[in-house]
Amino acid sequence: MTILVTGATGHLGRLVIDSLIARGVDPSTIRAGARDAAKASDLEARGVQVVRVDYNNPETVAAAVDGADAVLLISSSEVGKRIAQHQVVVDAARAVGVPKLVYTSATKATTSDLVLAPEHKATEEAIAAAGIPAVILRNNWYTENYAADVARAKETGVIAASAGDGRVASASRGDFAEAAAVVLTQDGHIGQVYELGGDVAWNFDDLAAAASEVTGREVRYTPLTTEEHATALEAAGLDAGTIGFVTTLDANIRDGALAETDGTLSRLLGRPTTPLIEGLRAAL
């Protein structure tokens, strides 16, 4: 069985490969797809096949997909370009009749107001239209996304956000990577859409408490209005596009876009998801 992992040099991709090998997959049957193969030399040293996968170059994608029994399409990091890039992989998978395509989507992608949802929704629709046997992994937020906030809080004692009392059902990247490895290697998942999140949905007071424990100093959460948050981000030197993205995301969180968790991730893993404090400590 040959498994292609796209985006293999990214944080999630590397962890997926780690999880596949930990589950007993022969490294020589894993294809690590990377835009820059030189960045995957460590994977090659472990016996993993390294192939060039550039979402902007359909020929590289077609060659990498050919002969694969399962393909993990890790969503592109280029927000705004994802739909066209993902379509390249979908088209290649359809052309060669890939038996299983696994896609890392976003929570409630087809119905959510989450700022990142539209590109994921379009990709899910493209996969369905192609008629490819697929598994959709709708990943909630990575705990590691807040590592930089906690690192700053070690100096300032403050985590400021405009998320109100919104909750985030985050889990560690390792948890989501292991779930991907499970569905790539097990039968019985085709056609499933899994809403994946941590066992506990925390709010930003909880995040501040976790930061206090991890950093060893008191950290408090300072709730801001959207306008106050935008002003603070502008003062920090962020551009208008980034400010709009960050404040919209916090508004999504405030409205509950990342709050739902039903235990699906822990059931796939066969264990509890990584607690917030442990995830942050490992990330730092």
Rank of each mutant, 00 (worst) to 15 (best):
M1Y: 14
T2E: 14
T2K: 14
I3M: 08
L4D: 09
L15C: 07
V16A: 00
V16K: 03
I17L: 11
I21K: 06
A22Q: 09
R23K: 08
G24I: 04
D26S: 07
S28L: 00
T29H: 07
I30S: 02
G33E: 01
D36M: 03
A40M: 04
L43I: 02
V51A: 05
V51E: 07
R52N: 09
R52H: 08
V53E: 06
D54N: 15
D54Q: 12
P58K: 02
P58F: 01
A64N: 12
V65L: 03
V65H: 03
D66Q: 14
G67S: 04
A70R: 14
I74R: 11
S75D: 13
S77P: 08
E78F: 13
G80H: 11
K81E: 14
I83N: 10
Q85Y: 04
H86Y: 10
Q87T: 13
A92H: 00
A92K: 03
R94I: 06
R94K: 14
V96Q: 05
V98G: 00
V102D: 02
D113P: 10
L114I: 00
V115I: 15
E125Y: 11
A126G: 03
G131V: 03
G131W: 11
G131C: 05
I132R: 08
I132N: 08
V135W: 02
L137I: 06
N139C: 12
N139L: 10
W141M: 13
Y142K: 13
N145C: 02
N145V: 04
N145Y: 13
A148H: 12
R152T: 12
A153T: 01
E155H: 14
G157A: 02
G157E: 01
A161V: 15
S162L: 07
G166P: 14
G166L: 08
A169F: 00
S170P: 05
S170N: 09
A171N: 04
S172P: 09
R173W: 06
G174T: 07
E178V: 06
A179I: 00
A180D: 15
Q186I: 01
Q186K: 04
I190V: 10
G197T: 10
W202M: 04
N203L: 11
D205N: 09
D206R: 01
A208F: 11
A210K: 02
R217I: 12
R220Q: 15
P223H: 07
L224T: 07
A230E: 15
T231M: 10
L233E: 06
A235T: 12
A236Q: 14
T242E: 12
G244H: 11
V246A: 05
V246K: 13
T248I: 03
A251I: 01
R254C: 07
A257N: 13
R267D: 15
L268V: 00
L269K: 08
L276N: 09
